[in-house]
């Protein structure tokens, strides 16, 4: 029986960078009880002897040559920027490590 508490959901929301209201945290945690029960079924057949599949096709070694191709102009690069300054993306203060 898998379930996620309100605090679990809050921690996941923090990891996923999504602000959530108290009501949303609580409703999601109850939904997850149902959803996780449904998806946990995968464990029934996922034995140690089964190889996981990460890519649907068995391709290997797909590379490109080390050749420079033209970049966007800075105008194109910044065309969608919510804010910019001196050809750079302007973003709110970054709190964190240097």
């Amino acid at each position: 029986m898998s379930s996620l508490s309100r605090d679990d959901v809050a921690n996941l929301a923090r990891l996923a960078r999504i602000e959530m209201s108290e009501a949303e945290l609580i409703s999601l945690s109850s939904e997850f009880t149902v959803i996780l029960d449904a998806v946990a079924r995968v464990q029934e057949v996922a034995g140690a002897d089964v190889e996981p599949t990460s890519h649907p096709l068995p391709l290997r070694n797909v590379f490109r040559p080390d050749v420079v191709i033209p970049s966007l102009t800075s105008g194109e690069a910044l065309s969608g920027a919510p804010a910019q300054e001196e050809s750079r993306f302007r973003v709110p203060q970054i709190l964190g490590e240097e």
Binding site: R64, P70, S71
Partner: peptide
């Protein structure tokens, strides 16, 4: 990606 790695270009001119 194919953007150049040359050091010291004008900001955001080596992006795609």
């Amino acid at each position: 990606c194919g953007c150049t790695t040359v050091f010291g270009g004008e900001p955001n001119t080596q992006t795609c």
